[in-house]
């Protein structure tokens, strides 16, 4: 079966994560995506798979951390605003 290179997808998600969610996870994803791409281009598909997997895990962890912290902050801010409106 022909191996597919997900470099564009991993790089795009890493950039999105650097801008939106969690900079450290985005940087890890970026470095791993570049290393995976280099391994793919040299024909080392085992290294490609492992590096791409690390990149995916870093991106998923970063996205979860970013979303969870944002949702919790949003709920706490919303609750504070609602309680201050109710005190009038």
């Amino acid at each position: 079966m022909e191996q597919k290179n997900n470099f564009g997808l991993l790089l795009g998600l890493s950039i999105a994560e650097i801008i939106c969610c969690c900079l450290p996870a985005g940087v890890v994803g970026l470095i791993m995506a570049i290393q995976a791409n280099n391994a793919f281009r040299s024909g080392d598909y085992t290294t490609y798979d492992s590096k791409a997997k690390v990149a995916r895990i870093a991106l998923i962890i970063g996205a979860i951390v970013g979303i969870v912290i944002n949702v919790l902050t949003f709920i706490s801010n919303f609750a504070m605003i609602a309680s201050s409106m109710g005190s009038y």
Partner: peptide, 26 residues
Amino acid sequence: SPQDFLIFRITKRFGIPIAILLLVYG
């Protein structure tokens, strides 16, 4: 297919310079 999305084809081509620019700006 996600590999063929325009946004990922753009990042495949220009992603590394964009990422470096973002990190330097940061």
